[in-house]
Design a binder for these strands. Structure first.
Lengths: 213, 213, 213, 213
DNA sequence: GATGAATGAGCCTTCATTCAT
DNA sequence: GATGAATGAAGGCTCATTCAT
């Protein structure tokens, strides 16, 4: 038992960390309760500060929400947009998909997705931000590889934008299903990897060149 | 003196219609405001009844929300699960997709989807209901046709469940994107029909038998 | 012992009286505490209603304050502006002064005066209202009689507006002093009537015609 | 490197001036906002010190207010109570009135008057202080000259205290009206000097000996 | 059944005051 | 002495729920 740690932290947390602490706590509480039901008291408690302290760093609850969403999205984005190009466009594409999938399957993505959906009316700029930073960014990334695959005749000739949307759409939706597996029996007995492989396989089949006939 | 009639509405609505009126109003207000921000006052006003009347038919706001979601989902489901089977499984599948697409593109679907997403934590049973009535039901429907197509060698041999999920996932996600076109440039300049055709074409390509090669 | 009355009023107060009850309570609490320090809880309690009820009739604290001031001023104004004209302008003037003095010496005037002074910055329209309804109205009234007195040679020829301001100014200030007698020893040992007589006497002396020389 | 000096103020204010700086800032902020609405943050900022510093010199907001009022009153009082006596009591009286009028028309008087009025309930000792230092002091001063004027038969025989109150009352009230000219049309088109002359003239007429007739 | 006035718990926000540095 | 980040009590306002009519 190391009860001592539960009594008093020896060093106060550095003040420079306050915004981060608060944003982290806000993420958790908003995730659990949604914007309206979340109480600033709870966020403060979870951040280990007093209610008033929040207002030293954020003008109000809405702005805290906004900042938290923006921050979390930005912190999550790690997609190397200029992915290393190997000889095979197919390999590159699959590699990118793997990275994107692991982003979609992180614990933060479904939470953010839900929060943004829920507050679409009140915070359209957040939806805009999400659409740009998550979807459009992914779109550019995948579109590039698919285009390359077409040019190299690894893929059949098709509108790369369409293929990209199919790819993105099915990945995003599968990620959401996977995060609520109990509700969706068709993914319930599959692991994340299995699901990913199935998606990849399906997409590649759709992209494969037409039979020579 | 019949002065009173000149102010009052000419026909009183039948009392039996009350629950329906309230549910309809609830749908509109919840759609616009979300659960927490919706005020019973507004719902009552929109339903043309008094606030107290709502409590004659629903025990509280949460239950009204639940009932509204359940009701709206049920009212929307029109998918003929045993669709008429023609000679071509491909034709049957496309026909089913067309029906499902028009359901997904109805004005109620994206609203319901958002409400359910937002209240996932507090009303898991609604998510369950949605998963069953909308996704699983669609899953059974499409799976059947794909299975048939495989058996008839119209489609390549693949796990029909996987194909179904890809089909459903991309349709649902495209529907959501289409309902917020301004945020998603890649669907912005396309009509619903175009998007549908693109999805169908892509899916059918993925399903087509492997080249004889 | 009539304890019964302290348990439950037999009849609820008529709802039409609510605004009046609240305004009355507001007057008392604002009088004691000022705008900022007054708590809506206290006003509600004193009005015998709940906090929420106040918001059924007034949109917020400030508006309640405004309404209370306006209302109280209007309720106090009873100056017969077209006072009956007797043969003597002097008598008429003194009669009017007596009426105005009793208004100024009412328990509400000093309270209102103080509240308006205190909130001059935030509610200039109230000061405007007071200036118009209390001062300007009195000005017109007295000016008329003084003008008449000059014409009838009961008073010396002087600017009636100046005389009126002197009259009003000294009456208002004396009223304020009288309402805090303990602070102002020079009025402490005098009754209201005495003070009034002194003011009247002084004013009439100032108005009396110049010596024939 | 003397980079630091380019940001910092060239001369640090002497610590002994701190209380004065704070009191001055307090006067301004209390004047603009009133006691309740004034924020210590603003006072600190205006004084060029930090919030905590205020508490090094004043135990709390109320005491700061008290001190500020007392200080400002004392700083304003410049009335030579034993004004030089010339041959004419009338001239002396007018001279004193002129001095008092310029005090009443200073920018600080109406502000203080309003603050004291507003906080009458919570700070009766300030009202007491004002009554003594401003009104009673003026009373003694004017009473003396009027008494002398009566003895020298420059004025008619009347209670000098009554005359003094009339004089003070009308001057104070006119000063307040003049400081809110837009609300009081009867002084709006008159200059301070004109108003003063009118008051003086009226008072002297009221004091002049009765006609020999 | 229907109404809508009344209730009061609950929460965001402010700001005087404290205190570690 | 001086700072300003942190605190937490207090209060305005909202709105789901009740209930007398």
């Amino acid at each position: 038992m190391v009860d001592s740690t539960s009594i008093e932290p020896r060093w106060r947390r550095m003040p420079e960390e306050r915004p981060r602490q608060i944003l982290d706590a806000a993420f958790e509480v908003f995730a659990e309760q949604g914007l309206a039901a979340a109480r600033l008291d709870d966020i403060a408690k979870r951040a280990g500060v007093s209610k008033g302290t929040i207002y030293l760093y954020f003008p109000n609850k809405e702005e805290l929400f906004r900042e938290m969403v923006r921050n979390t999205i930005l912190a999550q984005i790690e997609i190397g947009e200029q992915a290393p190009e190997t000889a095979s466009a197919t390999d590159d594409l699959v590699e990118c998909m793997r990275g994107y999938w692991s982003f979609l399957r992180s614990s933060t993505f479904p939470v953010l997705y839900r929060l943004i959906q829920a507050e679409l009316r009140n915070f359209p700029e957040l939806a805009q931000f999400y659409a740009e930073e998550v979807i459009a960014r992914g779109h550019r990334l995948f579109c590039h590889h698919i285009q390359r695959g077409i040019e190299k005749a690894e893929f059949r000739a098709l509108d790369p934008s369409v293929a990209t949307r199919m790819l993105l759409g099915s990945m995003v939706m599968h990620s959401l299903w996977c995060s609520k597996r109990s509700f969706f029996p068709s993914v319930a007995e599959r692991s994340d990897e299995q699901v990913f492989d199935e998606i990849t396989d399906f997409i590649l089949h759709a992209l494969r060149p037409a039979p020579v006939a």
